Simulated assay, not measured.
Amino acid sequence: MSHAEPLRPSRKQRVRTLWISDVHLGTRDCQAEHLAHFLKGYQAERIYLVGDIIDGWKLRSGIYWPQAHTNVIRRLLTLSKRGTEVIYVTGNHDEFLRRYSKLILGNIQLVDEAEHLTVDGRRLLVIHGDQFDVITRYHRWLAFLGDRAYEFTLVLNRWLNHWRARYGYGYWSLSAYLKHKVKGAVNFISDFEDAIAHECTRRGFHGVVCGHIHHAEIRQVGEVEYLNCGDWVESCTALIEHWDGRIELYRFAEAQALEAALRLAELGEPA
């Protein structure tokens, strides 16, 4: 199943686990409103924040923090107070938090990586994934240069969706589309998946949940189950574990379109 069921605001869907990565709070391209809408629809036993939740790189050059970004933090804190275990796995954009790894504050834990055991007994490594990105790890100046080019596509993406919304169209990611079409990006994604799958095999894990490359996917890489959360900058995606151990990929654009179709059906209008 490629997307989650649309939810009515009046009721929440109870699930076992949510995985969210690459929110990049503190940047203009963060889709905080969409994320808050998503979080309001679920009651989870455990939430993994799989790195790059706060963008420390961007915050160094200036503070951008609108109310919508605060609302996401408040939502997560409220969930933790109500019993949800929140596990924050550090990433490269929030690497300033790595000095505080193993910190525990109530129901909130800060770690560099975690192990998740599914209902049906699969051991999953939960890690952001920058450790397996050669450019980020060994050529930081290239990472920053690439980050600038990426930011430009996100600006185009922001304006495109501004006008799409004005004319009644749903969210669509130009940057994610380009990522699928550029050969170099496709090869980079494949190399990243192979590297992280190899590490899982070496350490005896059945699978991995990661983020970092902003490319949501569930697939087999050899003997390893590869699950990437995606992001809340361009694709607006997350992973959901249900009570039977099934893990599905949630796509906000698909859920949004389905909710709109249901509203039209309720009004007796053709979709």
Rank of each mutant, 00 (worst) to 15 (best):
Y250N: 00
I87N: 05
R263K: 14
K58P: 04
L105E: 13
L156K: 04
F132R: 06
R122D: 11
V182M: 05
S21Y: 13
V15Q: 00
R164N: 04
F38D: 06
A44K: 04
V126T: 08
D147A: 02
N71E: 15
I240W: 15
Y226F: 11
L117T: 00
V182W: 14
L154P: 12
D231F: 11
Q256R: 01
R166C: 07
L258R: 08
W243F: 02
C236A: 08
M1R: 11
D194L: 15
H214Q: 15
L227C: 05
S190L: 09
Y88K: 06
S61H: 15
A257M: 08
R75P: 12
I213V: 10
L227S: 03
G56A: 11
R166M: 05
A238N: 02
H3W: 10
E199R: 12
L125P: 03
R164P: 05
I247W: 02
K183H: 10
W57V: 05
F188E: 05
Y88S: 13
W163H: 15
A261V: 04
Q67E: 14
G170Y: 09
A68F: 03
K40I: 13
W232V: 11
T201F: 00
D120M: 01
A4R: 05
G106Y: 09
K40H: 15
L76C: 05
E199V: 07
D191W: 05
R28D: 01
D147G: 08
E241Q: 08
V209W: 03
V224A: 06
W159F: 00
G121R: 14
G146N: 04
S61C: 02
L258H: 08
L39V: 12
H139M: 01
E33T: 10
G184R: 13
V224Y: 01
E254R: 06
I135W: 06
L97A: 09
I54C: 02
H206Q: 06
Q220E: 15
P9L: 06
L227A: 13
A143R: 07
R246D: 12
A4N: 11
S190T: 09
Y100M: 12
V182Y: 08
V23C: 13
E151T: 00
E199D: 14
I247R: 05
H242F: 14
I108P: 07
Y250F: 07
H139G: 00
P9E: 13
A197M: 00
M1T: 11
G106N: 12
L59V: 03
R46Q: 09
R202Y: 04
E95T: 03
A195I: 11
K179G: 12
E193S: 10
K179V: 04
C30H: 09
D52Q: 06
L103R: 12
Q31T: 15
S175E: 13
N161L: 15
R99W: 08
H69D: 04
E248R: 14
W163Q: 01
D231C: 10
E225I: 15
H24T: 12
A197F: 00
Q67K: 02
L239D: 02
T136G: 01
A36Q: 04
I20A: 06
A261S: 13
R166F: 12
W65M: 07
G129V: 00
A255Q: 10
R60E: 07
K12P: 07
V72D: 08
D94P: 09
I104E: 11
R28M: 14
Y138I: 01
R246N: 08
L124V: 06
G129L: 04
R16C: 00
A185Q: 14
Q220W: 13
E113S: 01
Y42P: 06
E269G: 02
D22R: 02
H215S: 00
H34D: 00
L145E: 15
